[in-house]
Design a protein around this nucleic acid. Structure first.
Lengths: 238, 238
DNA sequence: GGAATAGTGTCTTTCAGACACTATCTG
DNA sequence: CAGATAGTGTCTGAAAGACACTATTCC
């Protein structure tokens, strides 16, 4: 907060939200089974091309509400609660030739069923975080997708479905499929299971998918986040 | 970027920068030797108390320039290049009762010699990221410090002095001292050395600090960032 | 029975943790 | 010489990597 008593004398920028809406295609998806995807839209005004959806912040609106409005108004989705992750701030004063505009780029992860009907196209994101297919996205939106997917993939390295793409309970096979889709790689079943199982709560139920029934697990409140992180740390003096 | 051609009709917020300036006290500092510190200032206007320095963004100014202005104008430091790290966005519409104001909280790390003369007090930050001493900081500034120091500490877990608190070359002992100050813990010499040495370039020089001269290392362009990260990852199918 | 999915025992390899010894400077 | 700092060999234990065997369902 600046040491001034006259706020009115500062020129104020327009503030927009740009949103990277990330999702995982279901394994039975026709075109892109089991891959990570992001929603892009074709712009109807100049500059023409493909870009992430966005929207100007309304008066006294929070970022959370602005992101919810992108989903509701720009994408035509039913309202739902979001916990947007800040990715970066666009501050190039010339990025919009009409006026000084800041953009707060955020990312949100949603299950495919919740975004399949959205206005726009869901396109695959490759291992390097680049959007598949044609020309690059407008503005710096390719970088947004790269940073958002890199952060997403890092979250999925060590912990079971941190963004809640699965429901409250799931089998280890279902969990592994989601992680493989997010990470874009096959994972070893045995080591993956051993790493995840002690972060989950085991239920008495089982569920079959064409073979031996798998034990159903649920997110456990007492998961030990320190466990998986410990290996990262420098050697403390004891 | 929103699908509208009339930017003028959107109300615009004031946009401020709040800055967590982090540093490490030298080992010969009188009051706080070898600890992590953050610069705070006593506010001259209401609400009174201690807070991070900040400043409103000027017309068509980038965040980088706004942060540089905080250092130059608000702290009275000579101009220098900064690479501010975005920490969070404050968007509570009622956070400033005078007008709708957004604040972009950033963090910058500088060596102590470069900030010792700054206007304000440098206070210690404890292991949990809390500011030492008296009452909490105003607004949500304690949370800024917590997030900024957590990110800083994470950067210092695996890689040698990523924020450049040391010069271009240094011994492993000097490096370890900086890491111990940032992390607030003693580190084992043998394991620390082995972890860092293959991310550094060995020079022919040596430097003594009252004992056997230590080999001088320098940052190596070909440091392998994947090496230290590999242990974090899920088991890939080969 | 055969195909498919699930669970896990176990051997190997790798690496962090810990200890301790040697090395080289200053005073 | 003592004291201080530096470098590293080596043993141990824990966990990941890899392989393979058993288990249980559906058709």
């Amino acid at each position: 907060v600046a040491p001034t008593s006259d706020l009115a004398r500062y020129p104020r920028p327009n503030v927009a939200i740009d949103l990277a809406l990330l999702t995982v295609m279901p394994s039975m998806h026709a075109v892109l089974p089991g891959t990570l995807g992001v929603l892009i839209q074709r712009r109807t005004e100049v500059p023409h091309g493909w870009a992430l959806p966005g929207r100007f912040l309304r008066k006294r609106q929070t970022v959370r509400d602005g992101v919810a409005d992108v989903l509701r108004v720009e994408l035509g989705l039913p309202p739902f609660d979001v916990a947007p992750q800040l990715v970066r701030v666009f501050d190039d004063p010339d990025r919009d030739e009409r006026a000084w505009t800041l953009s707060l780029a955020h990312a949100v992860t949603r299950r495919y069923e919740d975004v399949a009907e959205a206005r726009g196209d869901i396109v695959a994101v490759d291992l390097r975080g680049n959007v598949a297919g044609g020309q690059p996205l407008l503005f710096d939106h390719d970088m947004i997708v790269r940073k958002a997917t890199a952060a997403l993939r890092q979250r999925y390295e060590l912990h079971p479905d941190p963004d809640g793409l699965l429901g409250q309970d799931f089998t280890l096979g279902e969990l592994r499929s989601v992680h493989e889709a997010v990470l874009g790689e096959r994972l070893r079943r045995d080591t993956f299971n051993r790493r995840m199982v002690d972060q989950l709560g085991r239920t008495a139920r089982a569920r079959s998918a064409g073979g031996r029934p798998a034990i159903v697990y649920e997110r456990s409140a007492d998961a030990d986040p320190a466990h998986a992180v410990r290996r990262l740390q420098l050697p403390r003096q004891t």
